[in-house]
């Protein structure tokens, strides 16, 4: 009985593949990308940001990031700022969620004060950069609706071009165009369209390296704002995975100890 059922399924499979809509294919690509990036448990890394205005004036930011993978929910992240010096020791704790608002706390070391902050500023700039909070938040499947557009080659590599529409509240975007590498399912490029559906920003991913023989991480991201002429380079280094971090490293007590 079971065997017969399986045979029926095999016969039907190619048919269903043919009948797959652009939305289903878009979702399937997102599901596959998510599957391939599951199981890293926790990670630590260091970040440097270079902010450039349209006159080319630069300013630097430095921070350290810890992340914990949460099954069935968004990741937990703790970011500690090292530069500029006046915000050194300031720390940001975030419990991200797929669709419901994230839980966020800010630690102000001069006052020793932990402040729960509103996470409604999804579209607000992170540290004055061209990255919005929603750009650096963990990417969960449920955050978007998807639509596969076409195959396209980027730098000679075949990619899927997928359009995604934010499903969470307070996004600054009507839609994003994402180019996803067909072989590795890593993101190559994203275009962000603002609330008036004009092209706002382009993000490109560079210097990918593979960790634990599975997880691809870009070591440089370039965000260009087409409307203001400003740009931000986000450089990542010293990635480590499966370092033994637990929930306890992402609570308010740890936030107060973060350095």
């Amino acid at each position: 009985m079971r065997i017969r059922l399986l045979m029926v399924l095999f016969v039907l499979l190619p048919l269903s593949a043919l009948a797959e809509t652009a939305e289903e294919k878009g979702l399937a690509i997102a599901v596959e990308a998510d599957k391939r990036d599951t199981g890293w448990h926790d990670s630590k890394s260091e970040l440097e940001m270079v902010l450039r205005n349209k006159n080319g004036d630069e300013s630097q930011r430095a921070m350290r990031n810890k992340s914990l993978e949460v099954e069935g929910d968004g990741d937990k992240t703790l970011i500690v700022f090292d530069a500029p010096k006046d915000v050194k020791g300031t720390a940001f704790l975030s419990f991200t969620h797929a669709v419901k608002p994230d839980d966020q706390w800010l630690y102000l070391p001069a006052l020793k004060r932990v402040k729960r902050i509103s996470s409604s500023n999804k579209s607000g700039p992170f540290m004055g950069s061209e990255f919005a909070y929603e750009d650096i938040s963990s990417q969960e499947i449920e955050k978007y609706k998807y639509k596969y557009i076409k195959d396209e080659a980027i730098d000679g590599r075949p990619t899927f071009l997928v359009e995604r529409y934010p499903q969470y509240k307070n996004s600054g975007y009507t839609r994003q165009l994402a180019w996803i590498d067909q072989e590795t399912y890593r993101v190559t490029k994203v275009e962000f369209y603002d609330r008036k559906d004009s092209l706002l920003k382009t993000l490109t991913y560079h210097d990918y390296k593979k960790y634990l023989e599975q997880y691809w991480r870009a070591h440089r991201m370039e965000m260009i704002n087409h409307q203001t002429g400003k740009s931000t380079t986000l450089a990542w280094k010293d990635f480590s995975f499966n370092t033994g971090l637990t929930e306890r490293d992402f609570d308010k007590n740890s936030l107060k100890r973060a350095r």
């Binding site: 409604s120 500023n121 607000g124 700039p125 004055g128 307070n170």
Partner: peptide
């Protein structure tokens, strides 16, 4: 109460 991104700027 916070108004985020007022007057189409980054300001809150």
């Amino acid at each position: 109460y916070s108004f985020f991104g007022v007057f189409e700027s980054a300001a809150d």
